[in-house]
């Protein structure tokens, strides 16, 4: 029998609100499921849809983008753009054969540690329900640190490859 499904969830947080909310969840010792990893950016508007597609291609089961509440953006109106981009990207996901529930946009302010905990737990539960992403490789779990290292170095190579890929249209 295959090992128990552990969802891989990637969360993009803006520096000013959501990342601070995530910190506050820690300061308040909220209990959050451990299956998510956070990538910090200055503004949620920095999150290129390309990043999210890359994450899915690398086997993410779910991706969340978290930003300041509408009107609260540290950079005036960045989060409005994020909102539009995510709405469009959701439409695209289906074409890639991905359930739209695998992508989530949330507004989390710096004082909403509790909300951060709640939305992350709910999202991980939801992704768990959806099961492994169709893009996930089945042999992922058998990796050792050594192969992991080789893969990462190779990964850097791919980064450069991808650059040309991104710009090649």
């Amino acid at each position: 029998m295959a090992a128990e499904f552990k969802p891989k969830v990637l969360v993009f947080c803006c520096n000013w609100c959501s990342y601070a909310g995530a910190d506050l969840a820690g300061i308040s010792r909220m209990k959050i499921r451990p299956e998510f990893r956070v990538i910090r950016s200055m503004c949620s508007a920095r999150i290129d849809p390309e990043f999210i597609l890359r994450a899915f291609r690398r086997g993410a089961d779910g991706v969340m983008v978290a930003g300041c509440h509408p009107g609260d953006c540290h950079y005036i109106g960045g989060n409005y753009r994020t909102r539009r981009r995510m709405a469009l990207l959701k439409l695209l996901l289906k074409q890639f054969g991905l359930h739209e529930g695998r992508l989530k946009l949330e507004w989390v302010s710096a004082s909403e540690g509790e909300k951060f905990a709640r939305v992350i737990n709910a999202f991980i539960n939801q992704v768990e329900q959806l099961g492994p992403s169709p893009y996930r490789k089945t042999d992922d779990r058998q990796r050792t640190p050594e192969t992991g290292r080789r893969k990462l170095e190779a990964g850097q190579q791919t980064v450069d490859d991808d650059k040309s890929l991104i710009t090649d249209h």
Binding site: E50, R54, D140, R143, P145, L152, G155, V159, D160, K163
Partner: peptide, 17 residues
Amino acid sequence: TSQIMAMIDAALEESGA
């Protein structure tokens, strides 16, 4: 972009620990 892409790839590696 290359830095964020590298982080995404690294995040989705299987943990070696």
